[in-house]
Amino acid sequence: MTTLYLVLVGVLMGNIAVGLLRILRGPTAADRIQAGQLFGTVTVAILLLLAIILEKPIYFDVALVFALLSVLAVVAFVTRSWPHPDAKDQDEQRD
């Protein structure tokens, strides 16, 4: 059973490796943050599976903290740093 879970974790890690391609290719910043969001979810899944493999329920809590904070990055991205086509005007407004 542990072997099966290890294979599953390996597949999830492969997901991250392949998802790196999307970060590399873009084309827009939004696509990249999407890949980042997928990484967050995959990490939560990996942590859950590791908690089962290692039989340490404490790692569920690590997964919980990740799940809680995963919203932060995407909100920060959308509200603060989405590269804007007319960002020039905004810069002037802000100063």
Binding site: Q37, T41, V44, L48, L64, A67
Partner: peptide
Amino acid sequence: LIWILVLVAAATG
């Protein structure tokens, strides 16, 4: 709770 939190984060994002 983990699942609900990820759901909320994913839907919001």
